[in-house]
Simulated scan of single mutants.
Amino acid sequence: LVPPMIGIQKRFYSRVDEVLAPSQVMGEILREWGVPTPVTRWSRGVNHDRFNPAQRDLAWRRSLGIGDDEVAVGFLGRLVKEKGLDVFAAALRTLKARGVKHKTLVIGEGPARDWFAQEVPDAVFAGYLTGDDLGKAVASMDVFFNPSVTETFGNVTLEAMAAGVPVV
């Protein structure tokens, strides 16, 4: 299916006035496909007032049942299988099998929520968060794990980095 999908995308992007690509690599891929349309890199920014290490809130973590001695492994995003939820669940099973004390913090909602909850039954689901609540939640993770293979530009990764959270 790859060649026909590339053909469809090439035809689409060749008919627009300009393409705003989230990264230089995506622009290069369009060029390799033969798209003649001008491609401009569209960089993204992060609100550093909202996403920074000072937003970490241990009391908020405790209110969710995450102990101070537990490593909070976080997922942030729309709960759909193409975000790598199966990879995330498998990694958590490996941590559990190895005896690594941790707690899973899931931020987001989506159609795969019930499936994901069955795969990671010990996880804390904080739901869909925005604004300062989202900044606090991200900064309160110990590790951000983003297993998605479909991202063209993962803003959530930049937000975790800005919050001082290690990213996997």
Rank of each mutant, 00 (worst) to 15 (best):
R31Y: 08
R31V: 11
E32K: 14
T37N: 12
P38W: 15
P38Q: 13
V39R: 15
V39C: 15
R41W: 13
R41G: 02
S43V: 03
R44M: 09
G45D: 05
V46A: 03
N47F: 03
D49W: 07
N52F: 13
A54C: 09
A54N: 09
A54M: 07
Q55C: 14
Q55S: 09
A59E: 14
W60L: 13
W60R: 09
R61Q: 08
R62C: 03
R62I: 06
S63M: 05
I66K: 04
G67T: 14
D69H: 14
A72L: 13
V73E: 06
R78Q: 14
L79S: 00
K83Y: 00
G84Q: 01
V87C: 06
V87T: 09
V87D: 03
V87Q: 08
L95T: 06
K96L: 04
K96W: 05
K96Q: 13
A97D: 15
K101L: 14
H102S: 14
T104N: 10
L105V: 13
V106A: 02
V106N: 01
G108W: 00
E109H: 02
E109G: 03
E109W: 01
G110Q: 00
G110D: 00
G110I: 00
P111D: 05
R113P: 01
W115P: 04
F116H: 04
F116Y: 09
A117V: 08
